[in-house]
Every structure is written in C-alpha cells, then in structure tokens.
C-alpha cells in the first residue's frame, strides 16, 4: 500500500490517553489525539474561531475544548459543537505503523 500523502508525526506513546499533541509540518499545524480507548485522530491544529492552538486545550471524552473561549469540537469528526465555534475542523486520516502516528495530509 502506498504511503503517498502520509507524513510521519509523533511516536504513538508520546500522547497520553485522552490527550492531544501539537505537530507542525511546514506551514501546517496539526492536533493529534489519542482517545481514552487508545484510538488516534488528527485535525487542523488551530481553532476555527480565532486561530488558537487546540493542543493547548483540554480533551474530555471525544471532545477537544479550545483554551481560549472553550469552543468545543468532536475531534473524531471535526464537528463544531456550538457557539462560539460554528465552523467545523478539518480532519485527517490517521494510522499507526511501527509505533509512529502517520497522518495523511495530501
């Protein structure tokens, strides 16, 4: 299977369960999540409200909460859960290979 468009990000064990990590790739900023049941997800790293780094926020269940105005997104789908955030987050396919988290950005 081709790995075109996939980038290697962090190590899988670098992220705690129910937590998030920031990963920068060129001008792209990602937020990479590990859910409480050990699954990995990735979204754009900046809040759609005022461009704040979501990795500075808090993960609770399937929700990432922005540290600035507490805007909430479902990090699995990117869905904005209500004011002040109304624009969904872009999500990216993720897989774990050889202990590393790979994200498909292209």
């Amino acid at each position: 299977m081709s790995n075109a468009g996939w980038i290697e990000t962090c190590r899988a064990d670098e992220i705690d369960e129910e937590d998030v990590l920031r990963f920068d790739h060129g001008s792209l900023t990602l937020a990479i999540y590990r859910s409480a049941d050990g699954k990995y997800y990735a979204t754009d790293g900046l809040c759609t409200h005022e461009q704040v780094h979501l990795a500075d926020g808090l993960v609770m269940g399937d929700i990432i909460e922005c540290p600035m105005h507490n805007g909430r997104f479902d990090y699995r789908t990117g869905e904005a859960k209500g004011a002040p955030v109304c624009v969904n987050l872009k999500t990216y396919p993720v897989k774990v290979e050889g202990g590393r988290v790979l994200v498909q950005i292209g």
Binding site: A55, L58, E65, P67
Partner: peptide, 11 residues
Amino acid sequence: PLGKVAREIRL
C-alpha cells in the same frame, strides 16, 4: 505560556 496554564486552570 498558554500551553502550560490553560488546561490546568480548566481542570
């Protein structure tokens, strides 16, 4: 820095 403080205060 925001990254150190925000989530702790939220908790």
